[in-house]
Design a protein around this nucleic acid. Structure first.
Lengths: 350, 350
DNA sequence: ATGAAAGCGCTAACAT
DNA sequence: ATGTTAGCGCTTTCAT
């Protein structure tokens, strides 16, 4: 069957063959001319290009990809695109991809493992040339990524990476970022600092918690298990966890949350309860979401250099795809701690 | 040349042909079996599927697409993904796409016309089955979209749509939303309401301005040209425009901005200047970005039902691609006006 | 129920 | 400098 457009305007796309016929030459010559390959007369090249333009010829990347065994497309899998951190990384990836003429397919898992698996399949079927991933909150199993590795294409993780796999990874030093934030909070005079953590099987949350614990230890503050709470790090979760703490009669004087969102939830709740931030209660988050600087008071947080991270990802991919990649390694970026009003208790106001 | 993986682990992907050989049958039979087509013996079907699973066969969507003349992929072009409105639309599109097993390529133009053009080319070359677009701020020319139309694939615009083209469009009633917001502001006692507008060649900004003007007119408030300012609707632009107004000695008592971001900029600036919101100055934005409900005071704004809009888009595409699309039409959703504290001046506090 | 053969559009090895 | 040929992996006629 000749595939014909259903009910549409029956515009078949112009092919290289059509051009060849009209020029009285062959597809190979046209192909060469179009791609500025050597071995085509100047005159012929001109004629080909002129006709191509005139006929609105558009190369079929699908066909070329099939033939060449690559699609010049990469897939990016992230939990969500509407987080400033992830959209920053994506912006960085796109910037480099655009320059090197790669297309980027962005997939959102919404932190769901089933979607993550599905998207891996889809991308592999689409024969993307590489996959860049940040894991979803639910992901505690990496079988689907083993498939990527055995397919032979580059696989690069960023931020939320799998521990047990020997793969390329690009990270920010979560431990250091957290350590510094909590140290500052302690210096500001907070004594009972609570922590909202994410799942322990994700490196970032584990490291942030370790940084928190290390800061307490360095200052000889005993760890109170009641003050360390795992939740799913949304605004609502932050609000609820805070409420539950108070309901249980547990009263910290500050909070370091592994996420800006749950920090915000807690902050709003405490304000509603009449606590003044930072005098009565200090709050710090993580990721430097934009809203953290708009709210009152502005929220102390940690910037992860998201755009830069994205650029590193794409550059690493480009290196890998050129075959210049050595053994899988890791790149660790330094975070930037942003001390803002939400943890700046003037001790005399205590 | 047999295309071989460069330096990679030389894992060639299993093909339908490999399976056929191992089963002593032909590619056509394997293909039929895999896709549950009729005309294959029950027994053979089982054997094929078993082997496919065992060998980790993965269909090559590129090859199938080339043969069938479709990619089962759609492209979405938006100004940016880190706006709640756009990420909401994308979520809606993805939800429906996922169910119907379509892949979605998301492209960000960052409001730049050159990128918009480039992405259209890329998507057409990738032979996507349809394109969904919301125009960039710079876009005042639609030639690149004419190419999409002449390629014969469905083209659907949402929110920011081109006026002069006869295409499918999905919108929210910006005029009504703006009209209602400004009416409320007037009822709350504001008399000199400024307006931040976007470029006039984009429908949404034109309509929002019209809604603003209509509200004034209905209340017999004369329009003051000095109070209507075009800027690029970022936080910084909002801040700057507000500053310039005051510097010129022009003092409105409220602002209705066509964007939440520029509304925020103005709000922050006014607060820094010591004005109380909403008592001394009222502020309203547009789009219901999430941050609008976190800031103090919460910002009056207009919700555009973004996710629903995305679903409409994808469903319309599915209809079109099945050939059930009639002449291009338009779908208009009702906005939801969210009156919040930033415009709730208690008149006695005046 | 199965197989043979052609071809989607393009590229690249191998002629000439 | 150009042409010929083969084939990427798959689907779909058209046999049998």
């Amino acid at each position: 069957m000749t595939p014909k457009k259903k009910g549409h305007k029956s515009s078949k796309q112009v092919t290289i063959k059509d051009l060849a016929r009209q020029l009285g030459t062959t597809p190979s010559t046209v192909s060469r001319a179009l791609r500025d390959q050597s071995g085509v007369g100047e005159k012929m090249r001109e004629r080909v290009k002129a006709l191509a333009r005139q006929q609105n010829y558009r190369p079929n990347a699908v066909a070329a990809g099939l033939r060449k065994g690559n699609s010049h497309t990469i897939g990016v899998i992230v939990p969500r695109v509407n987080r400033d951190f992830f959209s920053g990384v994506i912006a960085g990836i796109e910037e480099v991809a655009y320059e090197s003429r790669y297309s980027v397919i962005i997939c959102q898992t919404h932190d769901r493992l089933d979607k993550e698996r599905q998207y891996v399949e889809t991308l592999l079927s689409a024969r993307v040339d590489g996959i860049l991933v940040s894991l979803g909150l639910e992901t505690d199993n990496y079988d689907h990524f083993e498939k990527v590795i055995s397919s032979g294409i580059p696989l690069i993780f960023f931020d939320r990476v799998p521990d047990e796999m020997n793969v390329n990874r690009i990270l920010v030093d979560d431990y250091q970022g957290s350590l510094q934030v909590v140290q500052q909070m302690i210096r500001a005079g907070y004594q009972r600092i609570a922590h909202f953590a994410g799942p322990d099987y994700l490196n970032v949350y584990r490291d942030r918690k370790q940084g928190y614990l290390a800061a307490l230890q360095k200052n000889n503050i005993p760890v109170d298990e009641d003050l360390v709470i795992s939740n799913d790090l949304t605004i609502e979760a932050g609000r609820r966890s805070m409420q539950e703490l108070l309901a249980k009669g547990i009263m910290p004087d500050a909070l370091f949350s592994a996420s800006d969102y749950s920090a915000l939830g807690a902050l709003l709740f405490m304000q509603e309860q009449g606590y003044r931030i930072p005098q009565d209660f200090g709050v710090a988050g993580f990721s430097n979401e934009k809203f953290t600087s708009y709210i009152k008071p502005p929220l102390t947080t940690v910037d992860q250099h998201s755009k830069e991270m994205g650029k590193y990802c794409m550059n690493l991919f480009l290196q890998e795809v050129k075959g210049e990649g050595g053994a899988p390694g890791r790149i660790m970026l330094n975070p930037e701690v942003l001390i803002r009003e939400s943890t700046l208790r003037k001790t005399d106001e205590k």
